[in-house]
Design a protein around this nucleic acid. Structure first.
Length: 403
RNA sequence: UCCCGGGUAGCUCAAUGGUGGAGCAAGAAGCUGUUAACUUCGAGGUUGUCGGUUCGAAUCCGACCCCGGGAG
């Protein structure tokens, strides 16, 4: 008996709408899942999340393992119960931290294009910091970023931790690579991820309560992506995630999706890890992605970057957000995004939000987070509606996007 | 009126004869499975004014202006 079931409700081209049934309720797809790394969507409480109609939240095994510990969370009823959230929950495996606190920390890079296409590892040498994770064949040793204590993750204990955390959807322990990794290393990491995925499948015993997603790797290499897709799909997990490096540009990212998605079975939910920005949500939904998670809306909100529709004052370079700290908003009485129905825009001006940011008032981050998540959830609802109406291209045109 | 101290970036202050700096503020950019209320960057100056000494003055000298404190 599978804990996670998916059925498609409509199709339009490669895009589809559907419902993922979880033990804590349904998720209408395509859906954006906000990140609640340490069992909180930063600055918000669960009442906010309910009012915003967050479809689910995604917490993190590495962070919750270090603090407060999976035993405690298990004892207190699992991560959802612990944080007072009664909707669906996901946990990430800690695989991303193997990368972000290992290679990523050492070289100052992420999984997507935050470098110039011709920049290489040499050019990044000045940004090196000491890595906290060291990977090996069977897992990864790491030192806690909190207190320097030594720990080890393996596929088996990642799954065990995630079973203790008790989220509805859990992810295989994988190795994420960066756009800076060459094909040889990316292939090694992929093979390791495949071996680990089999071990995760073995270790996954709580099948009637939690659904496991396998994770496809392969970087920006077509043959690797296809091979990885075939391998992971053959494991027959309840869901499939696309992880790893998504290249050095949005074009690369879409290319990777175009290689990968045709290999995937129609009847399983597809999660795109760590994406997205506004354009990405269109492009990936149009290609048949069902769920996303990303820190971008919440982190950007806390850093003063708030989302707007393109007609409301964006620049050619940045059509979908403004920097609300900018001096030019000091007397601006409009809401962040005119027409937005969120609490923040219904009640407060750009001038006030700017003042709160400039004054380093905590409310700034909360109001901005409410806005950005409302914006993204509204966008996802529009995308679902457009898929149902077969008008996704019109919607994209309205948003000045070529997905 | 006299005495003392001071006047350098928006603010608080360094620099004691040898190319005027810092912190904060202000400005801009960035952030994609959160080590992130984070990171990066640029700009900003006739050193109160006028004169003098000196190869060279924020620095020494004189006058004046302004601020603070004290005396009468």
């Amino acid at each position: 008996m599978s804990a996670v079931k998916f059925h498609i409700t409509t199709r339009s081209g490669n895009a589809r709408t559907g419902v993922i049934a979880t033990p804590h309720g349904p998720i209408k797809t395509p859906a954006f899942i906000p990140v609640s790394t340490k069992a909180t969507v930063k600055t918000l409480d669960v009442h906010d999340l309910q009012k915003l109609k967050a479809p689910a939240v995604l917490a993190n095994a590495y962070h919750l393992y270090l603090r407060p510990g999976p035993e405690l969370i298990a004892k207190l009823g699992g991560v959802g119960e612990f944080m007072g959230w009664n909707g669906p929950t996901f946990t990430d495996s800690g695989g991303f931290q193997v990368f972000s606190l290992g290679f990523g920390l050492e070289h100052g890079v992420g999984k997507v294009a935050n470098i110039f296409p011709d920049e290489d590892l040499q050019g990044r040498a000045s940004q090196t910091r000491k890595r906290l994770f060291n990977i090996d064949k069977d897992g990864a040793n790491f030192v806690s970023h909190l207190d320097g204590s030594k720990h080890r993750f393996t596929p088996e204990n990642s799954i065990e931790i995630q079973q203790m955390l008790g989220a509805d959807i859990i992810f295989a322990f994988d190795e994420c690579t960066s756009p800076l990794h060459g094909k040889k290393y990316t292939a090694e990491a992929m093979e390791r991820t495949h071996a680990w995925a089999k071990r995760c499948l073995q270790a996954w015993t709580n099948r009637d309560k939690q659904g496991l997603y396998g994770i496809i790797q392969g970087g920006a290499y077509k043959d690797l992506r296809i091979a990885s897709s075939e391998f992971i799909c053959a494991l027959d997990t309840p869901g499939i995630a696309i992880g790893g490096s998504l290249g050095k540009s949005k074009k690369d990212m879409y290319e990777i999706m175009d290689w990968t998605i045709p290999v995937l079975p129609e009847d399983k939910p597809r999660h795109l890890l760590g994406i997205g920005e506004v354009e990405d949500l269109f492009g990936a939904s149009a290609r048949g992605i069902d769920t996303f998670d990303c820190v971008s809306p919440t982190r950007n909100a806390r850093n003063g970057s708030v989302y707007i529709r393109p007609e409301n004052g964006g620049t050619a370079k940045n059509k979908y957000s403004i920097n609300i700290r900018a001096g030019k908003y000091s007397q601006n009485t409009e809401p962040i995004d005119p027409g937005c129905k969120c609490f923040t825009c219904q009640n407060h001006s750009r001038a006030y939000i700017r003042h709160l940011f400039v004054s380093e008032e905590l409310l700034a981050m909360r109001l901005a987070t409410i806005h950005n998540l409302h914006f993204i959830f509204t966008l996802m609802a529009e995308i679902r509606h457009a898929i149902q109406q077969e008008t996704l291209h019109n919607l994209a045109d309205n948003w000045q996007i070529n997905p």
